[in-house]
Computed example of a mutant assay.
Amino acid sequence: MAMDRPNIPLNALRTFEVAARQGSFTSAAIELCVTQAAVSHQILRLEDQLGVKLFHRTPKGLILTSEAEALSPVLTSSFDQIGGVLDRFLDGRYVETINVGVVTTFAAGWLMRRLTEFKKLHPGISIRLFTNNNRVDMAREGLDLAIRFGQGRWPGLTALPLMQTPLTPLCAPAQASQLETPEKLAQQFLFRSYRTDEWPIWFKEAAIHPPKLDGPVFDSSIAMAELAANGLGVALLPYGMFETQLAEGRLARPFHLEVTTGRYWITRLASKPESSATRAFEAWLTETAN
C-alpha cells in the first residue's frame, strides 16, 4: 500500500531546497532563473502549508530553522536521485551507466578494442572505465564492477573467471636474436613487477637458478613493455595483452616457455545487488573472454 503523500506543490519544495542550499533568496533566484520575489512567494506559500517557519532572516543571511534542517537534506537527496535518473535519458532512450575499474594492461591490450561490439549489442548501457594497477577499493571508489588479475580470492567480493594470461619474456627484436638459450637471459637487465615471485617461477620452469633480481620494480606492465621495446631490458609479460606490439615487430618473444601465475577476473561487491546492466556486461565479458 502506498503511503499517503501531502499535497505540497513540487515547485515550492524545489524552491526551498535551492534556497536552503544556497543560503540566499537572491542566489536561489539566479539558479532557478526566476525573480527574488517569486522565490520569496514560494517559500511563504510552503511555510503556510506546512504550518512552520523555515528560515530566520538575519543581516548575515538566511538561517535554517530546525524544521528546515530536517527537511533540506531529504529534498536534496531526492532531487539528486531524480536528476540522476533523468540524466540517463539520451536521445529519447534510457541509458544506464555502470562504473568499471580495470587493470590498465587489460584495458589497453584487450578490452578497449572490443567495447564497440558491446555497445552495438547494448546501446542502452554506457560503460565508464577507470584504470588502475590492480589495487582498487570498489566501495570507496564507487565501482559497480572491477576487472583484476589474481587468484580469484578477494574477501567480500564475488569473482567470475575470465582469461588466463601466461607470462613469457618479451624484449626488442634485436635483443631477442641474442638470446639463444634461457641461460643468457640471466645476464640481461630484467624489469620486475610488484609481484616478486614471477621471474623466480619462470626460471624454475626453465630449470635455471634465478639470478639476483635488483632491477627497478614497476606497477605497470605497459611501462615495462615500452622500455623493453626500446631495448632497455627484458620484461616478463602476459604476451596475449601485447599482440599488437608483437605483430608490429616492436616486441619479440625469444622463448616458447611460459608460466601461469593467475588470470583475469570480473569482480563485484557481494553486498551490492546486481543490476540488469552489470549482468549484461558480465555475461558478454565472460563469453567473449573465454
Rank of each mutant, 00 (worst) to 15 (best):
S78L: 10
R148Q: 05
D91M: 05
R88K: 06
D80W: 08
T288K: 11
I30M: 10
P161Y: 04
N132Y: 06
R192A: 02
L86D: 06
R135N: 02
A70T: 10
C171L: 12
R21P: 00
R195G: 02
V234M: 08
F130N: 06
D91K: 11
Q42G: 13
H122R: 15
A2D: 13
V100E: 05
I266T: 00
A186N: 05
I98N: 07
V85Q: 07
R250M: 06
H256M: 03
Q178C: 09
G142P: 09
S66V: 10
R153N: 07
L170W: 10
M138T: 11
L44V: 15
C33K: 13
Y94W: 10
P210E: 14
I82N: 00
T244Y: 14
W154Q: 15
E17R: 14
F118T: 03
T260Y: 02
T104A: 15
A28P: 01
P6W: 15
E69N: 09
Y264M: 07
A19M: 12
S271V: 14
P6E: 14
K204P: 13
A28K: 01
S72F: 13
E69L: 10
A229P: 09
R113C: 10
T261W: 08
G150D: 00
I266Q: 00
R253H: 00
R140D: 08
F89D: 00
P238C: 06
A174T: 14
T278L: 11
V259Q: 01
N134W: 03
C33E: 13
T105E: 14
R195Q: 14
L44K: 15
K184V: 01
W265M: 08
S275A: 01
